[in-house]
Write a protein that binds this DNA or RNA. Structure first.
Lengths: 131, 131
DNA sequence: TTATATGCAAACATTTTGCAACGCC
DNA sequence: GGCGTTGCAAAATGTTTGCATATAA
């Protein structure tokens, strides 16, 4: 009773690479668009199936931002996100503004296992345009 | 040319009260269910329309958590959320773990206008059950 | 060869919209 | 009475699934 065989296909390779080389989390439509650059005939169903597969494998994970589900590659270490209120792009931040290690007991008796922080504001590019 | 008149209806009153008296953010289905306790015939479209109306008025605002959109009353001051990984309930936290006032320039040149923090872990009740 | 993966289209789930009936003001 | 609001059903979105064909191994 072994796990079902996993095949390496061009579709999966391309979708994986799109996420691995992305500068931040991507929306499903964005993944489809970028992957179609290499595979014009790629279907949206394959993207959804592959995203689920990669998520189950722990190679990527979903990030929900303003109601939209984005996907990003795992294994990039602890980080957070910055959502630009001007251009809408989402950036990855490598500095963490909170000190809440696993096991911290938060006021009220909440035992913290993990945390997520999202910052909103102007990204460097949009801030420069305003000036 | 004044703004269109807003009418006070039983539906809007009930939906507003459901959110005002909620202990935390509620999912749309949860709002519908609670409101139907008072208004059995209430339609889901009215709930969506009213949620959008109240949001536009700034009286409530959406909170996205794990891909689900929840709504909570505004004007409760700055706070964050704790999502229990055991029972799934979402709690409101009144202590803020970050010091990022508006205008803070975050490493990388990001100008912070707002921030959101979500903590994950065991709520007091679930933590007690484990012990 | 053969079981898994893909693409298409149909099925679902969720949210929005059109419209006639209804009810505040 | 008039116009905003409601409930229903249809439409628009976003995501999943069935199935015949294509393909990795």
């Amino acid at each position: 009773m072994t796990a079902p065989a996993q095949r390496s296909t061009r579709q999966r390779d391309v979708i994986s690479r799109v996420l691995d080389t992305a500068e931040g989390p991507l929306a499903v439509a964005e993944v489809l668009g970028r992957a179609q650059g290499d595979l014009p005939g790629l279907g949206i169903a394959t993207v959804y199936r592959t995203l689920k597969l990669l998520t189950d494998q722990g190679r990527i994970h979903p990030v929900t931002l303003d109601g939209e589900t984005l996907y990003e590659a795992s294994g990039r270490g602890h980080h957070h996100h910055f959502s630009c209120t001007a251009c809408g792009k989402v950036f990855t931040l490598h500095t963490c503004p909170v000190a809440l290690p696993r096991g911290t007991v938060y006021p009220g008796g909440f035992i913290v296992e993990a945390h997520e922080v999202t910052l909103y504001g102007r990204c460097p590019g949009c801030a420069a345009q305003m000036a």
